[in-house]
């Protein structure tokens, strides 16, 4: 069999890499492929996250479950996630072992007069060998500076480093991620176990904050030359009132696409389409002349922002691998089912 329906013109390019974010363009394929890649990055790339917290002592203002939940959400560097087995599949242990889990402990006692923040920096790999630390080189440790890219960008845009904003990754890393603040004399002590999982099980295993894509060209567009021909000044102004951010009127009184629309930040609403149709009809045209539909966008601009547990390019690379495994697994099962006599005549 030849591969006659493969989209062999598919292209991925224009990659821009940041520390915790990435942009790229996927071309000449279908929305379903773009969406499958997006969904796989969000929900099916394995990472490590804390899943079991045993509280030994907690006299803080937050109750045990609240703290356990917060600890679960701390991003853990997951470059080595593939080296771990899923805890539920682990044949080496009953509970936890170094093949399927990473252990941590935290003990903080506030013996000062002030409030003491307990952060991800206080979370230290467990010393006991039953739940040992990660393989050397790529340890599963908290990502203290998760999300600093955004904060960097905001500070840079405002032109005021400081002003309550962390200005560098180093600052963020130095502060760590806040778990709870302990008042005078309060204590918090627990052990925690991180396991491998995927975002589909719980969002704490998702390696990304967000993955978004924008399809080009936009699904609905006006045929501006025809509109300019048909509509008079009043009609254009009428349409403009319903399509702010989409079209604007230039010095010659002609409609043109406004920058928010061209940048994909605004879209043509159903109301605007209806009004444009009515105005065109009143001027002797037809709706079909002034609106065009693009059913098959073929260019997808992606934006990925990670939580810091994996490099953005790793998230994409692994997502593509996961998607491939998914397709080949189902194909293998299908081949099996086909062999088991699908071609038998139906029972009835």
């Amino acid at each position: 069999m030849q591969m006659q329906y493969v989209r062999d013109r598919v292209q991925l390019d224009s990659v821009t890499l940041g520390r915790h974010d990435m942009r790229f363009i996927l071309r000449n394929t279908d929305v379903s492929m773009a969406n499958a890649i997006r969904r796989t990055m969000i929900a099916e790339v394995p990472t490590m996250a804390i899943d079991v917290v045993t509280i030994h002592e907690n006299t803080s203002v937050l109750h045990d479950e609240y703290i356990a939940h917060r600890v679960g959400l701390i991003p853990l560097a997951s470059g080595a996630a593939d080296a771990y087995t899923y805890n539920r599949d682990c044949e080496e242990c009953e509970d936890f072992c170094s093949r399927c889990s990473v252990g941590y402990s935290l003990t903080v006692h506030n013996s000062t007069e002030d409030d003491v923040p307990v952060t991800s920096k206080d979370l230290i790999p467990a010393a006991d060998s039953a739940v040992a630390a990660a393989p050397p080189g790529d340890p599963v440790v908290p990502v203290h500076d998760s999300g600093d890219v955004l904060r960097d960008a905001v500070a840079a845009a405002a032109g005021t480093p400081g002003a309550g904003l962390l200005t560098s990754a180093a600052d963020a890393a130095a502060k760590g991620i806040l778990i709870v603040k302990l008042g005078k004399g309060q204590r918090l002590s627990f052990t925690a176990v991180a396991k491998k999982g995927i975002g589909k099980e719980h969002a704490k295993w998702s390696p990304v904050c967000t993955v978004a894509f924008r399809a080009e060209p936009p699904a609905v567009r006006f045929v501006l030359p025809r509109l300019n021909e048909l509509l008079d000044e009043t009609a254009k102004a009428d349409l403009l009132s319903l399509a702010l951010g989409v079209v604007a009127i230039d010095d010659n009184g002609n409609l043109y696409y406004d920058s928010p629309f061209l940048a994909g930040r605004s879209a043509i609403t159903a109301d605007a389409v209806r009004r444009a149709g009515e105005l065109a009809a009143a001027a002797g045209g037809a709706e079909s002349e002034i609106v065009e539909f693009c059913e098959h966008p073929e260019r997808f601009e992606f934006e990925v922002e990670t939580t810091g547990v994996l490099a953005p390019k790793e998230v994409l690379t692994r997502a593509i691998g996961v998607l491939r495994d998914k397709v080949t697994t189902v194909a293998a099962h299908l081949a099996q089912v086909s062999q088991e006599g699908v071609d038998d005549p139906p029972l009835l």
Binding site: D8, D13, V15, I37, L316, T317, I320, V327, V330
Partner: peptide, 19 residues
């Protein structure tokens, strides 16, 4: 499924080059 697998492999190759 076979064609999808081929397309995903193409995307993986393009990604390597793009990276």
């Amino acid at each position: 499924l076979r064609d999808l697998n081929a397309e995903i492999n193409l995307i993986a190759d393009k990604l390597d080059a793009a990276l």
